[in-house]
Amino acid sequence: MTGAVTYRLQINGADHAVESSWLGESLLYVLRERLGLVGSKNACEEGECGSCSVLVDGRLVCSCLELAAAAEGTEIITVEGLSPDGTLSDVQEALVAEGGVQCGFCTPGFVVAVHDLLDGNASPSPLETKEALAGNLCRCTGYGRIEAAVERVVELRRG
C-alpha cells in the first residue's frame, strides 16, 4: 500500500482517527472498512446509485465520491447517526410501515436522502420528490412504497 495518510474524521458527532489509510480511499471505504460503519452501502462506487448517501456539512453527497482524507474538518452524518439511540426516525418508521423496504440495500441511502429532502422542503410535490430522489436507485420496489413513505412523513410532520 502506497501513499499512506493519517487524519481525523467527525462522524455522527464523534471523533475518529484514521491511521495508515491509502490516500485513494473513499469516505465510503473508510466508513465501512476502517470504522465499522457499514450502514452506507457499496452498490456502484461511481455516484450513480445513492446507496452510500451521507451528509457532509449538511449536504447530501455520495460518500463513494468523497476522498476520505479531504473530508477532515467536515461534519459527517451517516445513516447510523439518524437513529442514534435505536429509535427509528419518522422517515425510517415510514419506510418500514409503507413497505418501502425490500432487499434494503438502497434503504440507508434513501433514509438519508429523504431526511435531506424533507428538512429542506416540508411538503414536496410528487414531482419534487421524484427529482430529489432520482439519485437513489432501487431495484426492488419500483419506488411506489418509498414515495408513499415520503407522503406519510409529510402528513405526520404537518401534525
Binding site: 445513492g50 449536504r59 453527497v61 455520495c62 465520491l65 468523497e66 436522502a113 439519485g135
Partner: peptide, 8 residues
C-alpha cells in the same frame, strides 16, 4: 446527475 452530484 443527481442531487448528490449537484451538491458536490
Amino acid at each position: 446527475g443527481s442531487p448528490q452530484i449537484r451538491n458536490t
